[in-house]
């Protein structure tokens, strides 16, 4: 596991190492195609892979700048397309809880959204027990101008304001609308079962 800060340190201190790494991956992905050899509008797999790597590097840097307190972990340092973001909402139903989201960034990024799973699924209208996340910008509303920062904000919003109108877990959505107290109790109970530290939690 590698935290964002360590990843950045590794970037700045081991400059030579890092540039070697970048060079070797870029060789794998082949260098960007020459303008003359590129037929406009017909993206080659190599040019897409190149774009995805470069955009991802920029997005990760932006994420580190705009949210330095955010916990970002790389299970495998040699693969920056897989990482885990930990979010802890400061208020709302899920206050005091930590949620790990596993991101997998595809080679078609930013034309396709990253795959996101929640590793700490709880009773939530827009999360199911397998970790699937129901967020429109992760699916049909994805646009390439969105960045990792937009996605992290979207996920945080989902935790602050569960949306019962676009439910993945219909029972949870119904309970949230019909009986908010029972909803909160169920969240609390689930949390106790999992032995989270829940000292700070209070009903909203």
């Amino acid at each position: 596991m590698l935290r964002l800060a360590e990843w950045k340190d590794a970037q700045t201190t081991d400059d030579a190492d890092k540039s070697d790494e970048v060079r070797s991956t870029s060789q794998l992905a082949s260098t960007p195609p020459q303008p003359s050899s590129q037929v406009a509008g017909v993206p080659t797999p190599a040019s897409l892979r190149w774009l995805s790597q470069q955009r991802l590097q920029q997005d990760l840097t932006e994420l580190g700048v705009t949210a330095p307190e955010l916990e970002l972990q790389f299970p495998d340092l040699s693969d920056i397309s897989r990482f885990i973001v930990t979010l802890s909402p400061a208020e709302g139903w899920y206050k005091g809880l930590c949620f790990r989201f596993a991101f997998t960034v595809l080679e078609t990024y930013p034309f396709e959204p990253p795959l996101v799973r929640c590793l700490d699924a709880v009773w939530h209208p827009n999360l199911d027990e397998h970790g699937a996340v129901c967020l429109s910008i992760l699916r049909e509303d994805w646009r390439p101008v969105y960045t990792l920062v937009s996605l992290v904000q979207g996920l945080l919003h989902l935790l602050l304001e569960p949306n019962p109108n676009d439910a993945l877990n219909a029972a949870a959505a119904e309970m949230l609308v019909q009986d908010p107290a029972a909803f909160q109790a169920r969240v609390h109970q689930q949390v106790r079962e999992r032995q989270y530290h829940f000292e700070n939690a209070a009903p909203p």
Binding site: Q38, A40, G41, P43, T108, F111, E112, P144
Partner: peptide, 12 residues
């Protein structure tokens, strides 16, 4: 131009 063409050629 190259970026928007790649986007328009994707299904999303």
């Amino acid at each position: 131009l190259h970026c928007i063409l790649k986007w328009l050629s994707s299904e999303t």
